[in-house]
Computed example of a mutant assay.
Amino acid sequence: MKKLKEMLSIVLSAASLFGASLPAYAPSNLVEEVITTYIPMSIMNQSTKYVALGDSITTGYGLENYNSNDVKNKTSEKSFVTKLSKKIGKEAVNLGVDGIDSTRLLKAITKPSTADEKEIIAQIEKAGVITISIGGNDVFMALAEVLNDKLGKDKNLFNANKQDILKVTMDLIFNKSAKETLKNNVIKATRTFTGDKANNEEGNFASIIREIKELNPGAQIVVNTIYNPYDIQFASFCNEAIETINAKIISDSENGKNYLVADVYSAFAKARKGTILVNADTGKTFDPHPTAKGHEVIYTVIASVMQNNTLPYSIKASISNGKLTHSVFEGEVHFKVTPDKGYKIPKNISITIGNGDKTIIALDSNGTAVIPIADVGADMVVSGICD
């Protein structure tokens, strides 16, 4: 994209040298106008590259045989990045960085100083699809730093046992000063991400999106909302910070005009009890990273929003005297049965997912049934009879 801009600039400059004058109403950013107005998006988006930006959720931290120094492991078969790459038929370039927050990501794409950061710029310019998973570390690094400090040498939230973590957590609950410091740090980090309208501060997130779109106006961008790995009752401000960050991600999308939003938060929040999407769900660790099942759900949410809010799996529908449609939103799959003229909505439908057992689900008076998106991870068969 940078080369395209340079070429257009040269052409326009050459035209002026040979006596061609631009109209008085020509915009100051004429090169950008030419690119976005006269070059079809279908051409701009034909790149065979899929670039994944973000933190350790993007890298696949915690998946089987994970090694932070092994770049190849970023293409783990269980990673949402690999699954999405196969689905959309584009080569995955995983540029996730463990521990990165919005400040570091913004710095990498605006003031690259290392070879890795310069590579991020180069790959963004080549991308046809870009996914972004950022914001979790903005909130939880503040929490992790406090708890890790209390855990002591060689221990952290990821490797300490549950008893040690509960002990330092209880200490924090009754330490008013430490809790207030943590709260202020989380609020400050959240404001850095979202910006402050009152003071006309843009915030890291809006800056990241703007910079990426300037580097590559034609790429399809999908931004994940951030999930809550644990409901922190003693620190409700952490939960509020997640909601604030997600609200910013959703509002800035302008209903999909600016970028698509993959509502990972809702998909995780609405999963059935007992579904292990995060390592912390096992009760044995405080590790906030997604399990293989969690990555599957993230993939499903992203792929669904990329294909007009429909599942990326085949659905074999067998509805006698009627038809079946479905849509995905707010972390759930909504099935709707519409009977043919003269027939009634059935009381229920049966759903078989992959090689699983058949499940009977009741329909409401409108012919709608809802299941968590976390229940879906394979092709399915749906059947019913309209009497």
Rank of each mutant, 00 (worst) to 15 (best):
M7D: 15
L22I: 02
Y25T: 06
Y25A: 09
N29E: 02
L30A: 03
M41I: 09
I43E: 15
Q46D: 09
Q46L: 07
T48D: 14
S56Q: 07
G60H: 07
D70F: 06
T75L: 15
K78L: 05
S79N: 14
K87G: 06
G89I: 02
D98S: 12
K107D: 14
P112L: 01
P112V: 02
S113N: 13
E117R: 03
E119V: 03
I121V: 07
K126I: 00
K126V: 01
A127D: 06
G128L: 00
G135M: 01
G135L: 00
D138W: 00
M141S: 13
L147P: 04
L151M: 02
L151E: 11
L157A: 01
N161E: 09
K162V: 09
Q163H: 07
K167T: 12
T169I: 02
N185K: 14
I187G: 10
K188Y: 01
T192N: 15
T192E: 13
K197T: 10
E201N: 13
I208G: 05
I208K: 14
I209Y: 11
K213A: 00
E214H: 14
E214F: 08
L215H: 07
G218S: 04
Q220V: 10
V222A: 13
T225V: 02
N228C: 02
Y230F: 10
F234I: 07
F237E: 11
C238A: 15
I242F: 07
I245Q: 04
K248G: 00
I250A: 01
E254T: 11
N258Y: 13
N258Q: 13
Y265T: 01
S266F: 01
A267R: 03
A269V: 00
A280V: 06
A280H: 09
G294Q: 13
H295I: 00
T300Y: 01
Y313G: 01
G342W: 08
G342H: 12
I349A: 08
I353E: 15
G354K: 08
I360H: 06
L363I: 09
D364N: 14
N366E: 14
T368Q: 14
M380G: 06
